[in-house]
Design a protein around this nucleic acid. Structure first.
Lengths: 348, 348
DNA sequence: TTGTGAATTGTAATCGTTTTCATTATACTT
DNA sequence: AAGTATAATGAAAACGATTACAATTCACAA
């Protein structure tokens, strides 16, 4: 069904039908005839053709490292909410944390002429920088700080640092760490550094911390914990880079007869819903993933040129830290770092 | 950057550039000149224009009731995997289980001329049937059985029935049920019916089961359980429509001093990863959401006309039941019902 | 009756590609 | 050397919409 066929059926010109659809001047009788023809044929305008002619797109792209993850979900949820009533459709890419796929999706989306892209970055290869800066479509990075590009991210380092300090204040000294691969700067490197910084400030040895690298799932945390216990049976606290890992580790601790928190304290990052399921409940560094999504979406909308309705910014009160700075590298790139909150529960 | 500009820069015709991109006959020297021009300008072909001209789309739409849900995630993961190497991009819609939004997204996707749509249905309003059958784009429904449309779904009823029977065999008699809203036929009505059928077959009263309706989150399960306990303190088993609800209920049971499984048995549906986090571990009716996704994707691809590589069907061995029937209503509509597996853990 | 202005309407160009078809250049046969 | 087959090339039409512009209609005033 094309506009031409509808026009023919209604006995008018294609232009008239277009005017009917977009609110141009039109006589009553034609309006009725066209309405009838559309009704009859079930015609729906071809968005691609429209976009092509007008240059206006109502589609944005989202690229995430994985789908099966609570934090990713929260982010997507936040983005979706913000883009919802704006009638934007989202093109989803699923990079599996592989940079080739990240790039592949970026290119496909650029080819599809999306209005903008939100990239939940893990590894931030510099390839990206090269191929993105000049591709023309606005891009917002989330989860990682990236100079020269607008981004929304978390205060990963201080969050973990403060949680570790808390455990130290509670008397823990032989602290272990289960992290993730360091190519993921935010979740890998910065969280590890936060942990080490806390140790250093407390005068503990930060360089020889018993630690392991795990994947983003709980089995992996379980394995890592078993290994750590085998090597260092006297561990009295474990800081984990994510809650999911922490739950696996907790399971391993219990299996090896450790009481939590009497023998060993444990904490994670993220504030997963399952934190309330375990016994004891898992202490965690709460991050604002959902907020991260809405903020990234707003930022992108602003970049695209969609005006933002001046209003209250929603759940802003929940933030501990919240700096917003505008860097000027080659062009303005807004940076927003969200805060965190230490959630102390039974596990420490 | 358009093909015309590239052509001009390379000193050839647009047709030549097109041939370069799509592998038509071309002399070496032109190839080189064009390659250089593309390199220099960073030109990327406009997919929309291409689609417009050729009529071939490599985009499919997915509509899910919510993003923040493990089962939805698994499904999307399955779909993504299947569509991955086929170079399909996915347009994501997020209905929030509201049928107006479901419809809105359907229309937007049809307008965007996607090659096909996978709809994870909850409420299956008949509106859908009307507006979908004639819209021309192939549609696969997942999660719900829908006569006349191709769909992939689970054996919700028998799964819950078998789990309930198991609890009865273990000596439980005063069984309660926490379900979800019945407009969701699969998760609401069918699971409830399965529970009742088990009771009936065991000669128990199936009509006056203590029960509550909860939302798809754990707080809601917690509240429901408290209410049930207040009314029926002697409950000795709880069947829950989802694992997340079950975890909330379990928390409430513990808070009220019930030992699990000595005093009360509890089970859910879905096989959530957090089932291993709780103590005791949660028994569950495992569903094959991921498989559901891959099967739906394959089905859609088949409908679209993308040929399927004849090969092993992957994780098929995991299935208990697996019927595949071809209904012929107005057109062929393949139906695939996936099985389930009873996972018995500490909670019963 | 005729001229004027406003309101409607249609024609045709355009967006960025692909592809048909006719044309030109090249190589090969005899 | 001339004719023919084959390969390489470009001009122009199409895909389905929007929109600038010109054309038409109509009411109304002079």
């Amino acid at each position: 069904m094309t506009i031409k066929e509808v026009a023919q059926l209604a006995g008018v010109s294609p232009a008239a039908v277009s005017r009917y659809l977009n609110g141009g001047p039109l006589s009553k009788e034609k309006k009725e005839k066209i309405a009838r023809a559309i009704e009859e044929t079930g015609y729906r305008p071809n968005m691609m053709a429209k976009t092509m002619r007008t240059g206006k797109v109502r589609q944005i792209g989202i690229i995430v490292p994985r789908i099966f993850s609570e934090s990713v979900n929260q982010l997507m949820d936040g983005i979706a909410e913000e883009l919802l009533e704006k009638d934007y459709l989202t093109l989803l890419g699923y990079s599996d944390a592989r940079k080739d796929r990240e790039l592949q999706y970026l290119e496909m989306m650029v080819s599809n002429r999306v209005a903008g892209i939100i990239l939940m970055a893990t590894t931030l290869s510099d390839i990206k920088k090269l191929s993105l800066e000049n591709c023309g479509v606005p891009l917002v990075v989330t989860g990682q700080k990236f100079d020269g590009l607008p981004c929304v991210y978390h205060d990963d380092k201080n969050g973990v640092k403060e949680m570790t300090s808390l455990m130290i204040r509670k008397g823990r000294r032989r602290i272990a760490y289960i992290g993730v691969f360091e190519e993921d700067k935010a979740a890998g490197m910065l969280r590890r550094e936060g942990m080490q910084e806390a140790l250093r400030e407390a005068g503990l040895d930060a360089d020889n911390v018993p630690r392991r690298i795990a994947d983003f799932n709980s089995e992996s945390g379980y394995e890592a914990m078993l290994e750590l216990l085998a090597e260092h049976p006297d561990i009295d606290a474990v800081m984990c880079a994510t809650d999911v890992i922490a739950h696996g580790a907790m399971k391993a601790l219990k299996r090896k007869g450790r009481r939590i928190p009497e023998d060993v304290s444990i904490a994670g990052v993220g504030d997963n819903w399952a934190d309330l399921v375990s016994e004891p409940e898992l202490s965690t560094v709460r991050l604002y993933q959902r907020r991260c999504g809405t903020e990234a979406a707003r930022m992108l909308l602003r970049l695209i040129g969609e005006e933002e309705p001046e209003g209250t910014s929603g759940d802003g009160a929940d933030l501990r830290v919240g700096i917003r700075q505008v860097l000027s590298q080659d062009r303005f790139a807004e940076h927003l770092m969200l805060g965190y909150r230490i959630i102390e529960r039974g596990s420490i």
